[in-house]
Amino acid sequence: MRVAVQEQPFDFGAEAAAFAAGRHDMGAVVTFTGIVRDTAGDLAAMEIEHYPGMTAKALEKIAAEASTRWSLGDVLVIHRYGRMVPGEMIMMVATAAPHRVDAFEAAEFLMDYLKSRAPFWKKEIGADGAEWVAAKDADEDALTRW
C-alpha cells in the first residue's frame, strides 16, 4: 500500500506500470485517474487546498479500510494539491487483486471515500473570478452503498 500527497505532477503510465509489475498472484489491476475538467470552457485553473497534518493519515485509513473489505494484493493512492490547469491529472488510485470484481469494487470505494472524506477542497479559477466547488449530496449519498 502506498499513499502520496504531493504538489508536483505524476507520471500515470509509469505509476501504473510499476504498480502492475512483478506480481504473479494478481489477476487484475484497476486504475482510475481524475483530471481537471473545464465544463463551461472558461476555467483558467483549479486550486486544491488540503490539510497537511491530516491528509496522508485520512488517505491511509481509507486505503486500509479497502484492504480489509476486499481481497487485494496492493493499493496505490496519489493525490495532488496546489494549482492545476484543465487537462492535468489531479489524482489516481490503483488496486490489484486476484480477481477483477475485488479490484473494481475497491477502486470505486476508494473514489467515493476520497471525494467526501479526504481533506481536500477545490477552487475553480475562471474568467469572472474564483469559486469554491460545493460538495454534492450525491457524493455523500454514495457512501451509503458501502
Binding site: 481524475g34 491530516m54 467526501s116 479526504a118 477545490k122 460538495a135
Partner: peptide, 29 residues
C-alpha cells in the same frame, strides 16, 4: 470539524484535544 486530525462532530468533547479544524464538506478526488 476535525479533532486532532480525525473527523468528528460538533457535539464532541474537547477534553484533551490539542487541534481543532473547521472546514466545508470536502471535495477530493
Amino acid at each position: 470539524v476535525a479533532l486532532d486530525q480525525e473527523l468528528s462532530d460538533f457535539d464532541a468533547s474537547l477534553t484533551g484535544v490539542r487541534e481543532v479544524a473547521f472546514f466545508p464538506p470536502m471535495t477530493g478526488g
